[in-house]
Amino acid sequence: MRLADLLRHSRSRRLSHSRLWANIACAAATIMFLVNGWRGSLTADIWLIYMGVVGGYSATLRLIAAYRDRSRA
């Protein structure tokens, strides 16, 4: 996978704004998570929010892709 694949639509190969902003949001959340970890100020609330946002987004994308593949078959 190339870095550009994170920003382009898989079929048209054009810039995908939804992919762009979703990856920016996940990167910003990850950076803030790491900063809070470095400072020693991670709480259970921060863990839950981070895992819910980043992990939930990834799980939702996989669920949608699986549903689309199943409906095409």
Rank of each mutant, 00 (worst) to 15 (best):
W47C: 01
R11F: 00
S58C: 10
L20H: 07
D69W: 00
L42M: 02
R72A: 13
A59S: 14
D5M: 04
L15D: 10
T43Y: 08
A22R: 07
R62H: 08
R8L: 15
A4T: 06
I64M: 13
A25S: 12
Y50S: 02
S58Y: 07
L3E: 03
W47M: 03
R70C: 09
S16Y: 03
R2K: 09
G55I: 01
S12F: 00
L34R: 04
R62F: 07
W38A: 08
A25F: 01
V54N: 12
Y50H: 04
S16G: 11
S41C: 05
R11Y: 00
L63R: 13
S18T: 14
R14T: 02
A59V: 15
I49Q: 03
D45Q: 02
T30P: 03
G55F: 04
V35M: 05
R62T: 05
A66N: 13
R19P: 04
M51C: 10
R39F: 01
D5C: 02
S18G: 11
V53T: 03
G56F: 02
R13W: 05
L3A: 09
V53N: 04
I24A: 14
L42P: 07
L3W: 01
A4M: 07
R2D: 07
R8I: 07
I64D: 05
C26W: 01
M32R: 12
R68D: 12
A4L: 08
S41N: 13
S16A: 12
V54W: 04
R11A: 09
I24W: 05
